[in-house]
């Protein structure tokens, strides 16, 4: 985590020096295990900012609807910085209008897992190194942070911000980051019937609130395929066909684009696991095209790129 005073100071500086019009970060939420994204418009408001494990969202998802000419500062963890890179490559953001303030990331706490682990009304949570100190009504509990980390963060391969304008705090030494998602490996270890059963059981809970879509920085279509009426691409109901089609097509559209931040899963009120699908598709992109989303400022995702002199031919 960044030194919070240094972070607030930097935000205050870029606002007062008019380097940016507004800064996007997190402030404390209305419940002890939540943060709210916040747009800081004035230097003196920078004291509202927090930096803790409860910033559930990928802040890059809130950039698409900002005014085109706005200069905006964004407090970025690894996944936010990669999403911004990917959005820049896809020409959705103008990097020149952005001022990226990198912060070290220790992973996001899955508040649902935390609330279940302590089983009681949480009054306060303090982060103390590798531990969480949870204050309950008549009790205090200590938990290992790792125990209640969101799975996307547990599997994260690139927690450090990339391509930022400034870094607040020091990046920790990273060792033993898994190169492949263990969740994908576990899924692929099962036979087709078992895999379909897992997928069905997850998709079955879907209520089509599209929180996953809205929380995703890479879902920016002005008209989503599910909202399209002529032709209709999927059943409108919460039927098996309707929900499965949603989850499959959503994932497919993310091929080589998903930044594996897990914001979709954390936004889902039904706690549907979805990231194993997009992670799997991303592994294909690595294996087949050597492509890694957010790795640099230029490479187009393979399924979004075309060239008139494409070297691959359909028939030799």
């Amino acid at each position: 985590m960044a030194n919070i005073d240094a972070l607030r100071q930097e935000v205050s500086r870029v606002l007062s020096e008019k380097i940016v019009d507004v800064v996007l970060g997190f402030e404390a939420g209305s419940l002890p295990t939540r943060n709210q994204p916040v747009f800081i418009h004035k230097a003196k408001e920078s004291k509202r900012l927090v930096d803790n494990g409860f910033g559930s969202n990928n802040l890059a998802a809130l950039l698409a609807q900002r005014p085109k000419d706005e200069k905006i500062g964004v407090i970025c963890r690894g996944c936010e910085s990669r999403a911004i890179r990917a959005l820049t490559v896809e020409q959705q953001l103008n990097r020149e209008n952005l001022y990226l303030i990198g912060v070290p990331c220790r992973g996001i706490i899955d508040w649902r897992a935390l609330e279940r682990a302590v089983d009681g009304e949480i009054l306060a949570v303090a982060e103390d190194g590798e531990d969480l100190l949870v204050t309950l009504k008549d009790d205090e509990k200590k938990l290992a942070r790792a125990e209640v980390l969101h799975s996307a963060c547990r599997n994260c391969r690139q927690p450090d911000p990339v391509g930022t304008d400034v870094l607040i705090g020091e990046l920790p030494a990273r060792e033993g980051l898994a190169q492949r998602s263990p969740d994908v490996a576990a899924f692929l270890g099962k036979d087709a019937d078992a895999r379909y059963a897992i997928f069905s059981e997850e998709a079955e809970r879907c209520i089509r609130c599209y929180a996953c879509r809205e929380a995703c920085p890479m879902c920016y279509c002005t008209e989503c395929f599910v909202d399209h009426i002529t032709p209709r691409w999927s059943e409108s109901m919460v039927s098996k066909g309707g929900t499965q089609a949603w989850h499959i097509i959503r994932a497919f559209h993310q091929t080589g684009r998903c930044v594996s931040c897990g914001a979709c899963e954390r936004a889902c009120p039904m706690e549907i696991k979805m990231e194993y699908i997009t992670d799997r598709l991303n592994e294909d992109m690595q294996d087949m095209y050597g492509f890694e989303v957010g790795a640099n400022d230029s490479d187009q995702p393979p399924f979004a790129a075309f060239s008139l002199d494409d070297r691959n031919r359909f028939k030799e």
Binding site: Q36, V38, Y210, A267, P269
Partner: peptide, 9 residues
């Protein structure tokens, strides 16, 4: 509504 995602939760 500045930070509303526009989902149906």
């Amino acid at each position: 509504a500045e930070t509303c995602l526009g989902c149906g939760v």
